[in-house]
């Protein structure tokens, strides 16, 4: 019971952009350190020390960028859709800020996933691009992010802009499970999942561990980027308040 009271108090505090700005400033250095160390460790481990694959040789190493970018791009969308729901229901200012901040990060990560996948596809499959269910649904994810960004800019009134973007985010969240299961529901060129939650992963541990470190690094990087975007958005939106003016004067 005490936990729920604490969570509720935390939820209410989140309603204050100023409180969020101050607390996130304290988290940032630690999260940045975590992200940076995981990304460096994972990249060096994966690219230089992990063994080559028995069929693909060294070209499989793009997995260390491609898979984390793709996984976080979908997680980012769920965060954005969740923030959209909170914004629509509770009209929480911070939720709107988070939703707005997720869109450019998610768009960048999706683009990285598409780009690295294409580079890998040429030597492995023999083509840069194919309109299979997985690749097409990830392309739709990319356009959804761009759509959310565009809708924000399409309205003069900030209130209507965030409402419209929130509805689009919610509608688009249907796409995320489609991306995840597309390789099982339909015949596709893209292979099914290698890292499985319910059964043993079909990747050798020497390759899996650096991949998990990279995944951790990408998630940490996402949180860092989200905090940085949110903080600058908060400063912009609250630019007329006393505390931001005091911060700028200091």
């Amino acid at each position: 019971m005490g936990f729920f009271v604490l969570m509720w108090a935390f939820f209410h505090k989140l309603g204050s952009p100023r409180w969020f700005y101050e607390i996130s400033g304290k988290w940032l250095p630690w999260l940045s350190l975590l992200a940076l160390s995981c990304l460096i460790l994972g990249a060096v481990w994966g690219l230089a020390f992990a063994p080559p694959d028995f069929k693909q040789g060294n070209s499989y190493r793009i997995i260390f960028i491609h898979v984390p970018a793709a996984a976080v791009s979908m997680a980012c969308y769920m965060v954005m859709a969740f923030a959209a729901a909170i914004h629509l229901i509770w009209k929480m200012k911070l939720a709107d800020v988070v939703m707005r901040s997720c869109a450019p990060i998610g768009a960048a990560l999706t683009l990285i996933a598409l780009f690295t996948g294409s580079i890998w596809g040429k030597p492995t499959w023999g083509t840069w691009w194919v309109w299979d269910a997985r690749i097409t649904s990830v392309l739709i994810l990319f356009f959804l992010y761009l759509g959310v960004l565009a809708l924000y800019e399409a309205f003069e009134n900030a209130e209507s802009a965030s409402k419209a973007s929130a509805v689009l985010s919610l509608v688009g969240c249907v796409n995320v499970p489609i991306i995840y299961w597309s390789v099982e529901w339909w015949y596709s060129l893209h292979q099914p999942a290698t890292i499985k939650l319910t059964e043993e992963s079909t990747i050798h541990p020497d390759m899996l561990y650096p991949l998990l470190v990279m995944l951790c690094g990408f998630y940490a990087f996402f949180v860092v980027a989200l905090l940085l975007f949110s903080r600058s958005e908060i400063l912009y939106r609250e630019r007329k308040t006393k505390w931001v003016k005091a911060l700028a004067a200091a």
């Binding site: 080559p52 028995f54 499989y60 492995t124 194919v130 292979q191 099914p192 999942a193 990747i203 050798h204």
Partner: peptide
């Protein structure tokens, strides 16, 4: 007119194979 290779989900070092 075109043949693409479909990769499976197994990754392992050559020695293991």
């Amino acid at each position: 007119t075109e043949v693409l290779a479909k990769h499976d989900e197994n990754y392992m070092p050559p020695e293991v194979q």
